[in-house]
């Protein structure tokens, strides 16, 4: 599987990663190599094999609907880069 530059750019945009041209080219080559290596799993016949999303046999792990204390608002915002009126602040979203 060889990736095109457009594919690399598309993935980077999905992941919201700003990459330099050099990085894009590097990732194109490296990801292609890794995916080529990964393609070996295509040899395996897994038609009748169920997927394993998690190894645990657990199910129905739930909690009762009870309220527990929230953080003080200072703690919520303590790590925030930009705050206004006790809210996180970002540049207005256009599109």
């Amino acid at each position: 599987m060889k990736l095109s530059l457009e594919q690399v750019e598309h993935i980077a945009e999905l992941a919201k990663l700003g990459l330099t041209d050099e990085e894009k080219e590097g990732y194109r080559a490296q990801l292609s190599a890794i995916l080529e290596y990964a393609d070996m799993i295509q040899q395996l016949d897994t038609e009748a094999i169920p997927p394993t999303a998690t190894v645990l046999p657990l199910r129905n792990v739930m909690r009762d609907d009870e309220v527990t204390p929230s953080l003080p608002v200072e703690d919520v915002l303590a790590n925030a880069p930009d705050v206004e009126d006790n809210c996180f602040r970002v540049k207005a979203i256009l599109g």
């Binding site: 993935i11 992941a15 919201k16 990663l17 590097g26 990732y27 890794i34 995916l35």
Partner: peptide
Amino acid sequence: NTRGQGFGPEVKRRIMLGTY
């Protein structure tokens, strides 16, 4: 910017791989 410059090369590589 934040993600492109904040993450190192290996992390970006894996995010790209996983996204793909």
